[in-house]
Amino acid sequence: MFEAKLTESTTIKRVLDAIKDLIQQANFDCSADGLSLQAMDTPHVCLTTMTLRSQAFEVYRCDRPLSMGINLSSISKILKCAASKDSVKIVADDEGADCAEFIFENESADRIAHFELKLMDIDSEHLSIPEDSDYQAIISMPSAEYRRIFSDLSIIGDTITIEINKNTACFSVEGDIGNGSLNLAQTDSADEKNPVTINVKEPVKMTFPGKYLNTFTKAVPISEFVTLCLTDGNPLAIEFSLPDEAGFVRYFLAPKIDQ
């Protein structure tokens, strides 16, 4: 038996919004620890991982691990039927269930909606992601700043270079119409309302596809802050963490490299 109830549908709606433009379908792996998925996009440029830990849920029961193959567009359609303040309960049989039940209940518990989502058999392979905490450079910024930087630059072109030196990050773009750049300095005071922090072991300069950096802005409502971790020649890791360590959405983006 798998049963998980979120107090408000907003949490899962936001998480799905952050991943559904990158992956069409994925296995939602349920375990005693929580709900998680990982999937690559078709061109194998971006890997998306998501975790909703058991403490994110008001009720969480997973007697034994199960994997629910879900079409992201379909689950999003069903969740559109939940108001943001409605609670969401997901129920599935852990013995080869062919559908999952979604129950939406309003705050006054006098309106209850039931939906069944057909599950799919998805043949996906799990990738082993190096737990590399030894990044050359880590920058944390308000997620609204992230949105502004990459929605602006990706309009100019798709080749975006991130260069991080001591206390400064430079984001630059080259496009057909011209180019542009933006420098962001570490904020001086720890009391600053919207701090930017930059930790550099070694300066790093890498280039990434702007289209993806812009798509990741869909995760901005999840989190007030975003962390970008860079190591020369390796995928960029971007993390949006849910409040109260309830979970996260992480993206790994392959760099553009010299031919």
Partner: peptide, 14 residues
């Protein structure tokens, strides 16, 4: 010019 790499060279299947 730079070329887009893929993740297949970085992450191995479990």
């Amino acid at each position: 010019p730079k070329q887009q790499s893929t993740l297949l060279s970085f992450f191995s299947p479990k």
